[in-house]
Amino acid sequence: MEIHELAADAWRLAEREPGPRVVLGLVGPPAAGKSTLARALVAEVERRRGPGAAGYLPLDGFHLSNAQLDRLGLASRKGSAPSFDVHGYAALLHRTVTETGHAIYVPDYDRTLHEPVAARHLIRPGTRLVVTEGNYLACDEPGWTAARRWMAEVWYVDAPVEVRDRRLVARQLAGGRTAAEARAWVDTNDRPNGEQVERVRGNCDRVLPPIGLDISNGRD
């Protein structure tokens, strides 16, 4: 399926749902291509509907800081579900849907700093469609279910295991790990995280086949 078809489907969802703003969630294992697809959808909707018609809200902006991960003993499980501020994420989704009269600033994750950064993205007052993406959007645990209630639909982004594995190793190498360290991180952290996501695939409204978009930037 081409990006223009998916963007058209996303916009039809926005037109179908009541209210001034609709959130579409993209979920999938690490390195499935979620953020690349989300940004492509936003760009295509804006190309068709005008600047500000769509906005981007990544879960990655709600990574706990490295200091908080150290405090909680989660440094070796960075990227796992407990390493995110899920309640902060759910609260921002709530604001996104209900506070449409002013700008909403959205955090992101900086892969150079290896830390979350505030206010990198902007959702404008007239934005009709917001695309959010992350690993755990379809999970059944408390916090994630609170976030899910603000999404009109959640689409599962699929990708072959071997493709995701190759991307994940490349991401760790780009982040400064040695080949051995990258392999160990993927095997002990990214792979279990991906398996958790795969188990809740049935909670999604739609499963997308692998999308042929360039994700050489190392995002997921």
Rank of each mutant, 00 (worst) to 15 (best):
E153A: 14
W185C: 06
R166A: 14
A174S: 03
V186T: 03
A180Y: 04
G175S: 03
D158H: 15
V169N: 05
R183Y: 04
D158G: 12
R149L: 06
D165C: 12
R167I: 01
R171Y: 05
A180T: 11
A152G: 05
W155C: 01
A179T: 11
W155E: 06
V186N: 01
Q172M: 07
A184Q: 14
E153Y: 03
E162L: 12
V161R: 14
R164D: 07
R177A: 02
A184K: 09
G176Y: 09
W185Y: 13
R164L: 02
E162H: 15
V186R: 05
A170G: 04
V157A: 10
P160Y: 00
R149E: 13
A179H: 12
V161F: 15
V154I: 15
L168N: 02
E153D: 09
V169P: 06
V186K: 04
R167T: 09
D158K: 13
V186H: 07
Y156E: 08
V169K: 07
V157C: 01
D165N: 12
V163E: 14
A179M: 06
A182C: 05
E162S: 14
R171N: 01
G176D: 06
W150K: 09
D158R: 13
M151R: 04
W185A: 08
E153R: 10
Y156A: 08
Y156T: 11
R167C: 07
R164S: 08
A170I: 00
A152M: 07
L168S: 10
